[in-house]
Design a protein around this nucleic acid. Structure first.
Lengths: 275, 275
DNA sequence: GGCAGCGATACCCGGCCGGTATCGATACGG
DNA sequence: CCGTATCGATACCGGCCGGGTATCGCTGCC
């Protein structure tokens, strides 16, 4: 299996449409059809079921899609790491708006290290682990249990409890403390995007980032349960009420398991040092 | 980067010789030279330094070699998992001669599970984690701290202390208990192969598997420190003496982080259930 | 039943992959 | 010090494969 075939397959599996997939790949549709057919032939398994109106994934196709994404991510990561080995630098992914203070402390402490290299920040709206898997980043600050840490090495840094963020005018804003049951079935709960950027069907507003979320909450259109770190970022018109039985959130530093980078090891050591 | 290029590069990086690498790949030397040169050109980095007498890896080349091995392993794994999704089966890697009883218990308990699939055993001489990384196995029984568990999800099953295995006629055979210092610099210690099958230079006999090792020990040519599990497999002429300060050995069950297989989850649950 | 959308098929072209022949450099032996 | 063997690079050629256009066949829909 060549990465070209995997790229082609991922495009078709994601679009579920040969024409659009070919378009996205910048090639014509017939060679794409042919390549997928060859791939299926060599594997001896059907990856897609096609009628002339609809394309869908088989079980084998679903497996290969997941595997292919991981592989293509690893290839991109390998490429970047190979390219940048001579001019060392470090890309740190973090959630925009989250863990501001921790991040500042970490960057300062690391910069004071002997042999520290330049650190580039990659601020994500959501799915902070994604850049780690596709090679855009070397290290990430993640929040368990929200972010997936599958396939990554992690060290916990900090654990904190969660708060309900509501509009000041919301009936719950005056409460001393809340329980999950108090917020679990409010109609104003929101939906975050899936890793591929799509949204599962269901009730609640589709939300892209924290700023947008806070605006919605201030307007009384949404309610969210979030860790303590976001509190300093709350503006006017928002209130944070402790949710005593919400799961604790752990901030972890994560990196790819095979990382041999001196810089990553230093940063992790510094981070765990003052946790 | 195509997997073809990575396969070619790995061959050259491992052989450090274009001719032999081309031979191993079943192609002629000139296209191999050309492909590597193209790869370097596209990456904008030198991967190898060549004189007409010697080829060696650059820092970038060392990085790409490690990454490439992981990628090629992931590709092979993806292929096998995609192929076998419709006729589910499970390949379990374990060290030949190690953990025999635990293995039998595990297989029996899993077979009794509803929805259990066929389990194929892959018995390894050493480096049991390798088949997991290159896709030949779905689950493995590993022994920390001997086996590398980098990049794998693990659950500990069992911890045990270590014994020195010596010939009955050996001066140490009569001891009640030993310390690491007693065996650390015996001339009869052995060398195990590296993951690539080669042996680091140094003193001691090169050893391939347990049977061979036991034979060497019985002949008084070797001494080894090993976990308790091997005891039942010891034959005549061998003695096991506790080494009180040797690191504890933990048997773990390990699987690739992105595994979505129902069968793997079941097996892990069964294994951790009776640990 | 005509039509539009979509994947498959047929066929052609150009580039790339792999082959052979050879060169240039280097270590080594006489 | 020079001949020689070894090894990677270069030059050049042929065939295959990846990508293009044109078209077919099927299917759901007005």
């Amino acid at each position: 299996m060549e990465t070209r075939e995997l790229r082609y397959f991922v495009a078709v599996a994601e679009e579920l449409h040969f024409g659009r997939a070919a378009d996205r790949l910048g090639i014509a549709q017939p060679p794409l059809s042919r390549t997928i057919a060859q791939l299926e032939h060599r594997l001896g398994v059907a990856l897609l079921t096609r009628t002339s109106r609809k394309v869908s994934l088989t079980a084998a196709g679903a497996v290969l899609l997941a595997e292919s994404r991981a592989i293509l991510g690893a290839v991109a990561a390998a490429e970047r790491r190979t390219r940048t080995v001579d001019r060392p630098s470090l890309v740190l992914a973090a959630k925009a708006g989250g863990s501001g203070e921790l991040l500042a402390k970490l960057l300062d402490a690391y910069a004071a290290e002997p042999g520290a290299v330049e650190v580039d920040l990659l601020l994500c709206e959501a799915h902070t682990s994604q850049p780690l898997l596709d090679g855009r980043a070397d290290v990430a600050l993640l929040h368990e249990p929200f972010d997936s840490t599958a396939g990554l090495d992690v060290e916990p840094l900090h654990t904190e409890s969660q708060f309900a963020i509501v509009a000041s005018s919301h009936p719950l804003a005056g409460a001393e403390r809340l329980r999950m049951a108090d917020v679990a079935d409010l109609p104003e709960l929101v939906r975050w995007p899936e890793p591929d950027g799509s949204y599962l069907p269901g009730p609640g507003v589709e939300v892209h980032n924290l700023t947008q979320l806070f605006q919605l909450i201030a307007l009384g259109r949404a309610v969210a349960v979030m860790p303590e770190v976001v509190r300093p970022g709350l503006g006017e018109g928002l209130a944070a009420v402790p949710v005593v039985d919400a799961p604790k959130v752990t901030t972890v530093i994560a990196w790819p398991p095979h990382s041999r980078s001196r810089a990553v090891a230093d940063l992790v050591r510094v981070a765990t040092g003052f946790s």
